[in-house]
Amino acid sequence: MTHALVLLLALAIGVIAGLRALTAPAVVAWGAFLGWIDLDGKWSQWVAHPITVIVLSILLVVELITDQLPKTPSRKVAPQFIARLVTGAFAGAVIGSAFFHTFSAAGAGMIGAVLGTLAGAEVRSRAYAASNGNDRPGAFGEDVVAVGGGFLIAFLVSLV
């Protein structure tokens, strides 16, 4: 049962990476730093280091700001999509490493990133249309879901 829950959480953090590429690694780092994700003695323990948490948090804030810019490319173009696959796999692997399921959790994180990228783009385009061409409500809503959902997932790891 634990393996299935770990894969589900890795899939979910991958969805977060699909919404915001750098949110998934940042919230996983915060989860490890706060003790929600036990990485002691694992290959991934460096993720809980304060410097890692600070750097990933800064990158997360920069991403949240740049996502609001009109010139930001679509998440579905190759570089953006690949970044989401990589960060989703990484965040999933970190969660999985807490339970010695690194590789399967990395795969689940990558699958989640695909789902989050495609679903997020669709929801965002519908929000754009519903707001008469105003992208901000959809963007801010997605930010809240990504950051809040990411922290929820990181916390839920502590309950497994």
Results as ranks from 00 to 15, higher is better:
residue 1 M to D: 15
residue 1 M to T: 13
residue 3 H to I: 11
residue 3 H to W: 13
residue 5 L to E: 14
residue 6 V to L: 04
residue 7 L to S: 08
residue 8 L to S: 14
residue 9 L to T: 06
residue 10 A to K: 09
residue 10 A to I: 02
residue 12 A to K: 09
residue 16 I to T: 07
residue 17 A to V: 02
residue 19 L to E: 01
residue 20 R to C: 01
residue 20 R to M: 02
residue 21 A to F: 00
residue 22 L to A: 08
residue 23 T to P: 00
residue 24 A to I: 01
residue 25 P to F: 01
residue 27 V to S: 06
residue 27 V to R: 07
residue 31 G to M: 05
residue 31 G to I: 01
residue 31 G to R: 05
residue 32 A to H: 09
residue 32 A to Y: 06
residue 34 L to C: 07
residue 34 L to F: 10
residue 37 I to T: 11
residue 37 I to E: 15
residue 37 I to M: 12
residue 38 D to Q: 15
residue 38 D to F: 03
residue 39 L to T: 08
residue 40 D to G: 10
residue 41 G to C: 03
residue 42 K to D: 15
residue 42 K to A: 11
residue 44 S to D: 14
residue 46 W to M: 04
residue 46 W to S: 10
residue 47 V to K: 05
residue 48 A to P: 11
residue 49 H to G: 09
residue 50 P to K: 09
residue 51 I to Y: 07
residue 51 I to F: 07
residue 52 T to W: 08
residue 52 T to V: 07
residue 53 V to N: 12
residue 53 V to S: 09
residue 54 I to V: 10
residue 54 I to S: 12
residue 55 V to S: 04
residue 55 V to P: 05
residue 56 L to I: 01
residue 57 S to C: 08
residue 58 I to R: 15
residue 60 L to I: 00
residue 61 V to M: 11
residue 63 E to L: 00
residue 65 I to W: 14
residue 65 I to P: 15
residue 68 Q to N: 13
residue 69 L to Y: 01
residue 70 P to N: 14
residue 71 K to V: 09
residue 71 K to A: 15
residue 72 T to A: 13
residue 72 T to F: 07
residue 72 T to S: 13
residue 76 K to A: 13
residue 78 A to Q: 11
residue 79 P to M: 04
residue 79 P to V: 01
residue 80 Q to W: 03
residue 81 F to P: 09
residue 81 F to Q: 07
residue 82 I to A: 10
residue 82 I to Q: 10
residue 83 A to Y: 13
residue 85 L to H: 00
residue 86 V to C: 02
residue 88 G to F: 00
residue 90 F to C: 00
residue 91 A to I: 01
residue 92 G to W: 14
residue 95 I to L: 12
residue 96 G to Y: 06
residue 97 S to P: 12
residue 97 S to N: 14
residue 99 F to S: 14
residue 100 F to W: 12
residue 101 H to T: 06
residue 101 H to P: 04
residue 101 H to L: 10
residue 104 S to W: 10
residue 104 S to T: 11
residue 105 A to Q: 12
residue 105 A to G: 11
residue 105 A to R: 09
residue 105 A to S: 14
residue 107 G to N: 11
residue 111 I to E: 01
residue 112 G to L: 00
residue 113 A to N: 07
residue 114 V to C: 00
residue 116 G to S: 09
residue 116 G to N: 09
residue 117 T to I: 02
residue 117 T to E: 05
residue 119 A to P: 09
residue 119 A to T: 10
residue 121 A to G: 11
residue 121 A to W: 04
residue 122 E to N: 14
residue 122 E to K: 14
residue 124 R to S: 02
residue 127 A to I: 04
residue 127 A to F: 05
residue 128 Y to M: 06
residue 129 A to W: 02
residue 129 A to T: 03
residue 130 A to C: 08
residue 132 N to F: 04
residue 135 D to S: 09
residue 136 R to W: 09
residue 136 R to L: 10
residue 136 R to H: 11
residue 137 P to E: 10
residue 138 G to L: 02
residue 139 A to L: 12
residue 140 F to K: 13
residue 142 E to C: 01
residue 142 E to M: 03
residue 143 D to N: 07
residue 144 V to G: 05
residue 145 V to P: 08
residue 145 V to A: 11
residue 147 V to P: 05
residue 151 F to T: 02
residue 156 L to F: 03
residue 156 L to W: 07
residue 158 S to A: 10
residue 159 L to W: 12
